[in-house]
Computed example of a mutant assay.
Amino acid sequence: MSIRHSLLALLQDQPRYGYQLRVEFENRTGATWPLNIGQVYTTLDRLERDALVRKEGDDGGGHVVYSITEAGRAEVGNWFTVPVERSSPPRNELAIKLALAVTLPGVDVQEIIQAQRGASLRALQEYTRARRDATAGQRSADTAWLLVLDSLIFQTEAEVRWLDLCEARMVQQAQGK
């Protein structure tokens, strides 16, 4: 996830200080990926160093307010137009765990798969419930939150299918011995 670009995108709306950026990011993404406030301010410092944001002064309450520069607008505009690269996939702890488990003696891979499947199905139920609740009784639900929920639902469904495949491979391997 690009925190750098996310903060720039939020600053396009209006100048904000770090805590406001953190809250706005979490509001728009349903707090799915919480930001550490230290990470926000570290990123703002780098964005200022790179002339993508500038300090606008104090808000009167001791908070330093940042605004986006023209270079920052160009940077975030480019970010929105360029597809997310898949050449360097993010680390997947579950895939790493299973890859290591199948190579180590004494590890019950089936047990790992079953435990994860249960956790994944519970998460899928929670995401589906959250999606239903987000749309119930509202003419127009928060589109940003619905997009995040849909993404989480599809990712979790894919994970369950992948776990099914892993289990089938373990069965096939056991029968082949």
Score class of each variant (00 low, 15 high):
residue 1 M to L: 06
residue 3 I to F: 10
residue 4 R to M: 07
residue 4 R to K: 14
residue 5 H to Y: 14
residue 5 H to K: 10
residue 6 S to I: 08
residue 7 L to K: 05
residue 7 L to Q: 02
residue 10 L to V: 01
residue 11 L to G: 00
residue 12 Q to P: 01
residue 13 D to V: 11
residue 13 D to E: 11
residue 16 R to Y: 12
residue 19 Y to A: 09
residue 21 L to Q: 01
residue 21 L to K: 02
residue 22 R to Y: 01
residue 23 V to W: 09
residue 29 T to H: 11
residue 31 A to H: 15
residue 31 A to T: 15
residue 31 A to E: 12
residue 34 P to L: 05
residue 34 P to S: 06
residue 35 L to M: 08
residue 36 N to E: 04
residue 37 I to V: 13
residue 38 G to A: 07
residue 38 G to R: 09
residue 41 Y to F: 14
residue 42 T to G: 12
residue 42 T to R: 10
residue 44 L to D: 00
residue 44 L to W: 00
residue 44 L to H: 01
residue 46 R to V: 01
residue 47 L to F: 03
residue 48 E to M: 03
residue 49 R to D: 07
residue 49 R to M: 08
residue 49 R to Y: 07
residue 50 D to L: 13
residue 50 D to R: 15
residue 50 D to V: 04
residue 57 G to M: 03
residue 57 G to E: 05
residue 58 D to A: 02
residue 58 D to M: 02
residue 61 G to W: 11
residue 62 G to K: 06
residue 66 Y to K: 01
residue 67 S to N: 10
residue 67 S to G: 14
residue 70 E to F: 09
residue 70 E to H: 06
residue 71 A to R: 04
residue 73 R to F: 04
residue 80 F to S: 14
residue 81 T to D: 12
residue 81 T to C: 11
residue 82 V to H: 15
residue 83 P to M: 12
residue 85 E to V: 09
residue 86 R to A: 11
residue 88 S to V: 12
residue 89 P to H: 07
residue 89 P to T: 03
residue 92 N to Q: 10
residue 93 E to W: 08
residue 93 E to V: 07
residue 94 L to D: 03
residue 94 L to F: 04
residue 95 A to S: 04
residue 95 A to C: 02
residue 95 A to W: 04
residue 96 I to K: 06
residue 98 L to C: 04
residue 100 L to D: 06
residue 102 V to A: 09
residue 104 L to H: 14
residue 105 P to A: 03
residue 109 V to F: 02
residue 109 V to P: 00
residue 110 Q to T: 07
residue 110 Q to C: 03
residue 111 E to H: 15
residue 112 I to N: 03
residue 112 I to Y: 08
residue 113 I to P: 00
residue 115 A to F: 05
residue 115 A to G: 09
residue 117 R to G: 01
residue 117 R to L: 01
residue 117 R to W: 04
residue 118 G to T: 11
residue 119 A to G: 11
residue 119 A to R: 13
residue 122 R to E: 07
residue 125 Q to C: 10
residue 126 E to T: 15
residue 129 R to V: 10
residue 129 R to E: 12
residue 129 R to P: 05
residue 129 R to Q: 15
residue 131 R to P: 09
residue 132 R to G: 08
residue 133 D to Y: 05
residue 134 A to V: 03
residue 135 T to V: 12
residue 137 G to C: 04
residue 137 G to R: 05
residue 137 G to N: 06
residue 138 Q to T: 13
residue 138 Q to A: 13
residue 140 S to P: 02
residue 140 S to A: 12
residue 143 T to R: 06
residue 143 T to S: 11
residue 144 A to N: 09
residue 144 A to M: 06
residue 144 A to K: 05
residue 147 L to R: 14
residue 147 L to C: 13
residue 147 L to A: 13
residue 150 D to K: 08
residue 150 D to C: 05
residue 153 I to E: 02
residue 154 F to Y: 10
residue 154 F to L: 13
residue 155 Q to R: 12
residue 155 Q to C: 07
residue 156 T to Q: 02
residue 157 E to D: 05
residue 157 E to F: 05
residue 160 V to I: 10
residue 160 V to S: 07
residue 161 R to A: 11
residue 162 W to M: 05
residue 163 L to N: 02
residue 164 D to P: 00
residue 166 C to I: 11
residue 168 A to N: 09
residue 168 A to L: 13
residue 169 R to L: 12
residue 169 R to Q: 15
residue 170 M to K: 06
residue 171 V to I: 13
residue 171 V to L: 05
residue 172 Q to W: 10
residue 173 Q to H: 09
residue 173 Q to M: 14
residue 174 A to D: 09
residue 175 Q to L: 09
residue 177 K to P: 14
residue 177 K to L: 15
